[in-house]
Amino acid sequence: MRRILILSLCALALAACEKKPPPIESVESLVANPQRLKELREACKADHAKVGDAQCNAVSEATRRRFLGSGQSPYAGDPVKPPAPPAAESAPPASSAPKD
């Protein structure tokens, strides 16, 4: 009985000592720190599994934001109007046709 207790305590101690993944740097912090972004981008290219999917996804999103900016086009307020809808509405309604 005592052995079972000791073994279970050892198992609990080993489970408590399990390595936790390092915290993931946010996209905003990576956009603000281009040197760290470059380091992590190279680390993701070298060993994606070691860095982890979540961190590499944040790195790729930060790279995209730095390259594309906010995503707003300088031409977003372009005064060009969209084309008019098709002329199907200009046909006379069937109820106004002359009756014989």
Rank of each mutant, 00 (worst) to 15 (best):
R41D: 14
D100W: 15
A76C: 02
L37M: 08
L68H: 13
I6S: 08
A91C: 04
P23H: 13
L14Q: 04
K81H: 10
E89R: 01
K19Y: 15
E39N: 05
C44Y: 00
A32C: 04
Y75M: 02
P92D: 10
E39I: 00
R41F: 09
L7I: 09
C10Q: 05
S95K: 13
P85H: 08
T63F: 05
E39P: 00
R2P: 00
P92Y: 06
A84L: 13
P98N: 12
P93T: 11
K20N: 14
V59Y: 08
I6K: 06
S95M: 10
L12E: 12
P79R: 04
A13I: 08
P93N: 14
K19D: 15
K20L: 07
G69N: 00
N57L: 07
S60C: 04
Q72L: 09
C10M: 08
K19G: 08
K20W: 15
G71A: 02
G77E: 14
P98A: 05
A54L: 07
P86F: 13
N33E: 13
S73Q: 11
Q35S: 07
A54Q: 11
R3V: 02
S70T: 07
E89N: 09
A49R: 05
A97Y: 12
S70E: 08
K99G: 10
R2Y: 09
K20G: 02
I4N: 11
A91N: 12
R3A: 04
A11S: 03
A54R: 10
P21I: 01
R41W: 14
P21Q: 06
I4V: 11
A84W: 15
P22K: 07
A16Q: 12
S90R: 09
Q35F: 14
D47R: 00
A49W: 13
P23G: 05
L5F: 14
T63I: 06
S95D: 15
R2S: 03
A15N: 06
S96A: 09
A94I: 08
A13R: 11
A13L: 11
V27G: 05
P83F: 06
A16E: 15
H48N: 04
P74C: 01
I24Y: 11
C10G: 07
S73L: 09
Q35T: 11
R65A: 02
V80H: 13
V51N: 01
V80L: 10
P93H: 14
S73E: 14
A97I: 06
N57I: 06
E89F: 12
P93K: 10
D47P: 00
R65D: 12
A88N: 12
A58W: 06
P98D: 12
I6R: 02
L14R: 10
V31D: 09
G71T: 01
V31C: 09
N33H: 13
D47C: 00
I4C: 10
C17N: 11
A94Q: 13
V51K: 03
A43S: 06
A13T: 10
M1S: 07
E42R: 01
S29E: 15
G77T: 12
A97L: 04
D78A: 03
Y75T: 07
A16D: 10
K99T: 15
R3W: 14
D100K: 05
P21S: 07
R65G: 03
A84Q: 15
D78G: 04
S60H: 15
E42A: 02
S29G: 04
A13V: 05
A32G: 03
F67A: 03
P83T: 00
S73W: 15
R3M: 03
V59C: 09
L14W: 12
P93W: 14
